[in-house]
Design a protein around this nucleic acid. Structure first.
Lengths: 126, 126
DNA sequence: TCAATCTATATGACGCGTCATTCAATGACA
DNA sequence: TGTCATTGAATGACGCGTCATATAGATTGA
């Protein structure tokens, strides 16, 4: 019943879990310590930073991340409270919101991104 | 500042995240629906099932999973409440506990494992 | 053998993500 | 234009994982 293939699958899965958790934890701690934001906050910040257009984006964000819509909403709450991002209402669809980095947000993002990339390289690349 | 290598790293990381989350969510939902246990509960059950010796294992479990010691403790709480596992005190070190599957635990595990492996195959291997 | 230290596990407060629901705005269609 | 369904986002209850701590048992060394 426990075939060799099963064992391989389980091994593969555990190794994915481990590398995912170790990397995520390392980044999360570092960002928390140095910039006082968590990994998910950074990921959203990063997505906002890389989208140049001013399209309505709360929705789009949800499609680029495994986070739930409500998770995104709450992450944005925190980012907004921290003064890193602001929600702008959207003229063409008043249900929608788009996000903009504040100056503080842009500054923090560019510093944090360096750290983020470095930790990715350390944990993913050899 | 945003080098090509950086972009590649970020891409790689997002793809890991996505495959991790999608797989974990799929397994979690399926196990929840069919067996009323979550993914972490199953993982612990799986670890207990595959350790043949009767060594004191709460500790050992913590080393084979990215979960925290307290997370393991709480997962075991739930498994015990569900009657799938029992905590046995350890003669040679009375601080330690080892775990044993109950009959119900063994039965559920062997059914759930089939589902688990199938979903791994579906999500990891093509 | 007694104190100091260490180790295995449990526990409570807390933060975050999820689900279900809600609300407002939009669209579709008669 | 009025109704009904749909969509973008926010919210509250809830479950789970984490951190810091607590507790009981083990170990070391004078």
């Amino acid at each position: 019943m426990a075939t060799t293939q099963d064992r391989q699958l389980v091994e593969q899965w555990r190794s994915i879990q481990n590398s995912y958790f170790r990397t995520a934890a390392a980044i999360d701690r570092a960002l928390e310590a140095k910039f006082d934001i968590g990994l998910n906050e950074f990921e959203i910040l990063d997505l906002v930073a890389e989208s140049v257009d001013s399209a309505c984006r709360m929705k789009a964000l949800g499609e680029r991340t495994p986070m739930t819509q409500s998770a995104v909403s709450k992450v944005v709450d925190r980012l907004e409270k921290a003064g890193l991002v602001s929600r702008m209402t959207c003229a063409d669809d008043r249900r929608s919101l788009y996000l903009e980095l504040t100056d503080a947000g842009r500054a923090l993002h560019s510093d944090a991104a360096v750290e983020h990339r470095a930790l990715l390289k350390e944990n993913l690349g050899e």
